[in-house]
Design a protein around this nucleic acid. Structure first.
Lengths: 189, 189
DNA sequence: TTGATTTTGTGACTTTCGTCAAAGGAAAGG
DNA sequence: CCTTTCCTTTGACGAAAGTCACAAAATCAA
């Protein structure tokens, strides 16, 4: 059932059967309906998640009450609200299912134990974070380097699943523009 | 001489004298003149750095030859080009001294050894990366949530050292706007 | 100090964006 | 199948951004 995660781990860092068994034993499964929340603003993130099926978004609310989407997740992506999780503080962000989802879940307390017990997970955690940091840096460079139109074209070419599966009103704030502007950019092309 | 780093480490994760001695023994010092490069686009990042004194920027060149600044560093900041370092590929980015600098330096090979030898550094590395990821996420949210004027006001309030010590032409691309626009925003206020 | 270089600010003009309001379309649920 | 709700598009308008060219100011080096 959890074999996809094993494969994802294996790609990052070769995992032994024993290390895998420890992990497998603490995983839990959770089903989410469309629009259901995995984490709500003001609550503390209680673990890390692996998205097995569906799509999920992270967003927060700006001073005018507008939703700002900061990330989209699909099959085989890891999810977490790192700041809330590591500092144990209320999250500024919401994590919500866009489509109905199946997620695998590890409780924070168990994750801490996992880190303490095993060098493997300590190292894996570091390597996953390296990858997250790299993609976060790419995202902010993307925002400062390209114009709105170029951003849309970039996504169209490099992450077409965003345009196919994410409502455009969500995508707009991810691109740093209003939903009307995104609509006009699409028309121009 | 390297005591500031020890203090910085200690704040993140309590360090033993033994762990510290290992670290201290592999540190090297490097002086940089103004405008000197720590890393040039196309070269592979050879280690991680700790900025002891001065200021440093990270930038890349866009399709029109314009410089896009993606980060600024001051005293006691850690620096690295994670993608180049971890994947061992040529860097897309330049790292350059703005003011003249003193940096402490750890070679990549020695860093790998450090990770292998010690649980402490494995864990510290993960925790530093958690902090880097959090600030990267804040930066991209900052770009999508605020308007250009709001971004300038935010920096003025929360990171005044950027305005005091960084040339405005560098700051502009960091804020995702042109140098002329930044000048006009400053005038309006 | 002085001349050269770098950095910052302005003017004029065009393009694009944001906003508000409203109309079409598409999807979901009974 | 129809109705309701949600999502996307469009129009009109004002504000702001980008660009190019140049001027002013600050900084650097001889």
């Amino acid at each position: 059932m959890y074999l996809t995660i094993k494969k994802v781990f294996d790609k990052i860092l070769k995992i032994t059967d024993e290390d895998w068994r420890i992990f497998e034993s603490i995983l839990e499964t959770k089903k989410l309906k469309k629009k259901e929340y995995l984490l709500k603003q003001g609550h503390t993130c209680r673990g890390i998640y692996f998205l097995s099926e569906g799509s999920i978004r992270t967003f927060h609310i700006d001073k005018d009450g507008k939703e700002i989407n900061t990330a989209f997740y699909f099959q085989n992506d890891f999810l977490r609200e790192i700041e809330s999780l590591t500092k144990n503080i209320p999250s500024q962000k919401n994590i919500q299912a866009i489509e109905s989802c199946t997620v695998f879940y590890i409780d924070k307390a168990k994750l801490t134990t996992l880190y303490e017990k095993s060098d493997f997970y300590q190292k894996l955690g570091r390597m996953i974070l390296e990858n997250i940091t790299i993609s976060e840096q790419k995202y902010s460079s993307f925002l400062t380097t390209y114009s709105p139109t170029e951003r849309y074209l970039y996504i169209l070419k490099n992450r077409p699943e965003l345009i196919e599966r994410i409502p455009l009103q969500y995508l707009a704030s991810y691109l740093g523009i209003s939903r009307e502007s995104l609509s006009r950019i699409r028309k121009r092309i």
